[in-house]
Design a protein around this nucleic acid. Structure first.
Lengths: 121, 121
DNA sequence: AGCAGAAATGAAAATGATTTTCATTTTCAA
DNA sequence: TTGAAAATGAAAATCATTTTCATTTCTGCT
């Protein structure tokens, strides 16, 4: 765990949700941190392989990251303004596990995100 | 529905599962079809927006496509060999709707994919 | 402190999927 | 037949991400 990784974790904490590498880089710049885009990517790779950060994909293929750790949860994302609400998903957890085991799958994980238009939009 | 879209549907039928645009293009070439990569992409976009083809993302961010079945369903995808099983998800549908409405969201949709290692791998 | 080798850094170039541009060809209805 | 609209594809542009490589910072050691 080096200095850059600490910076990236810090900004992820402030974000409190998903962000892409490019977004994180810009946020760090705005905060006056001196860090290169390459280093942000490398820190994220390292954190993902250490299971400190979760990585998934936006619909457009861009990778997005968030701190893992708190309880496993999902997101309700507004299609228009992008605001997100964390939602609990124990129903999903159970469904995932059941379905996968029925088909003999091991080491099961899942992605589930809900999209809609929030009350403000 | 134009000629190119028919070709793309044809190759997707032969593939019988997920394939990327690049792969589909190569397969079409090998089959002696005269079609450009650009046109493959355009046909896929069009088919996706007509709900004839499903699009999702590999872990590396590359888009993969597959003919969709009639009913709304999800996929159980093997992380190693890429084989997929369609799974029914009425539990998810209900959960999605409930959760979103609790938060006042409208026009709700969702994504949910389950990943694991299949019995053969 | 001083030093050598290892690790980290970041600017610039490379990569690769996807999209856009634009000139040409095909389709099709009047 | 004719002309406008749609389709096509080669080449260029885009954009996230990775790689390269020269430089800088750490580290442990004397």
């Amino acid at each position: 765990m080096n200095k850059s990784e600490v910076k990236v974790i810090g900004i992820l904490e402030r974000v409190g949700g998903f962000a892409s590498a490019q977004e994180l880089y810009q946020l760090l710049q705005r905060n006056g941190e001196s860090i290169g885009l390459t280093t942000v990517y490398r820190a994220l790779q390292s954190l993902v392989s250490d299971k400190i950060v979760d990585q998934l994909r936006r619909d457009d293929g861009e990778a997005i990251y968030r701190l893992c750790g708190d309880s496993h949860h999902h997101h309700l994302v507004c299609k228009l303004c992008g605001s997100t609400v964390e939602i609990e998903g124990s129903a999903i957890e159970r469904w995932t596990k059941t379905v996968a085991e029925q088909h003999g799958f091991r080491e099961v994980g899942h992605t589930a995100e809900v999209f809609g238009i929030c009350p403000n939009c």
